[in-house]
């Protein structure tokens, strides 16, 4: 079997194991509907407060870096929804470090399923849909309130961007988990990149220094989660004077992110299996 065949088999088996494990956790969650409903509502309230901070800011100013409230809401909605999807699907992998530390990773390695699928689906927390819901609500408001000159391409770009953004955040989460094979206490470092990155993206690129925007575009391409495609949809100049076609790049960037994240994961797992710690 060639390398491509192995990867394909791994993905298929991984997806199968993921569904089995996540399904088990969902059934278990649903056994306690009331506590699930409460987790959902409190999640909505907490993430809702996040956007209230932005609303408060706009009670003092009319624009932030040249972006109006609905435009900032558009950025916010895209970033929060993508991140919410990634966090729901793969966020549990962030606990890898503690599994390495207490040795329970070994118990995953004796099961006939890829390890990444098992850690990602572990304790699948359906109540995390609250973040997605809140992001989607803000996005809905933004779409209704902004004055966009809609074309077919722009309409298609919104869902494509959401999925691409989720994949980009997912790649960051996987790479962060892979890093925990080496540094088991790196969960905070990972949070700085994921939560930090997500918060950064809620504000327009125009409020940040050029160096930071450059880093977030070329080195660590979070800008393609929302800044670049959103600027195009809103009819604004793209950050860093990027050419117009860069607005269609999110799916390609997302795919390109998967490769290093996958390799990092494999390298991390290989190093664990050769050192055992």
């Amino acid at each position: 079997m060639g390398e491509a065949g192995r990867v394909r088999d791994g993905l298929r088996e991984g997806w199968r194991a993921y569904r089995l494990i996540a399904g088990m956790w969902i059934r278990s969650t649903m056994a306690y509907r009331l506590s699930f409903a409460m987790a959902l509502v409190s999640g909505l309230l907490v993430t809702g407060l996040d956007f209230v901070a932005i609303l408060l800011m706009f009670s003092r100013v009319d624009a932030l870096g040249g972006y109006s409230l609905p435009e900032v809401a558009f950025l916010y909605g895209l970033s929060a929804t993508s991140f919410g999807i990634a966090d729901l699907v793969i966020g549990s992998a962030g606990r890898l470090g503690s599994r390495v530390r207490d040795g329970t990773l070994d118990t995953l390695l004796v099961r006939p399923a890829p390890v990444l699928a098992q850690v990602a689906a572990d304790r699948f927390a359906l109540h995390r849909v609250s973040r997605i819901t809140q992001g989607a609500l803000v996005l809905g408001y933004a779409l209704a309130a902004t004055d966009v000159d809609w074309t077919v391409v722009k309409v298609l770009l919104v869902p494509v961007t959401l999925v691409s953004g989720a994949v980009i955040f997912g790649a960051v989460l996987v790479a962060g988990a892979a890093f925990q094979f080496v540094a088991q206490d790196a969960a905070e470092v990972q949070s700085a990149f994921t939560y930090g990155g997500q918060t950064l993206l809620q504000y327009p690129p125009t409020v940040f220094g050029k160096e930071l925007v450059r880093a977030v575009t070329f080195v660590f391409p979070l800008a393609f989660v929302n800044w670049v495609p959103a600027a195009y949809v809103l009819g604004r100049p793209l950050p860093l004077d990027l050419p117009g076609w860069a607005a269609y790049a999110p799916p390609l960037v997302a795919l390109a992110c998967c490769a290093p994240a996958g390799l990092a994961w494999r390298a991390g797992l290989r190093s664990y299996r050769s050192t055992g710690s």
Partner: peptide
Amino acid sequence: STTIKMLTGILT
């Protein structure tokens, strides 16, 4: 334990 881990494929 190292032996067992090699026999189960956990360790290389």
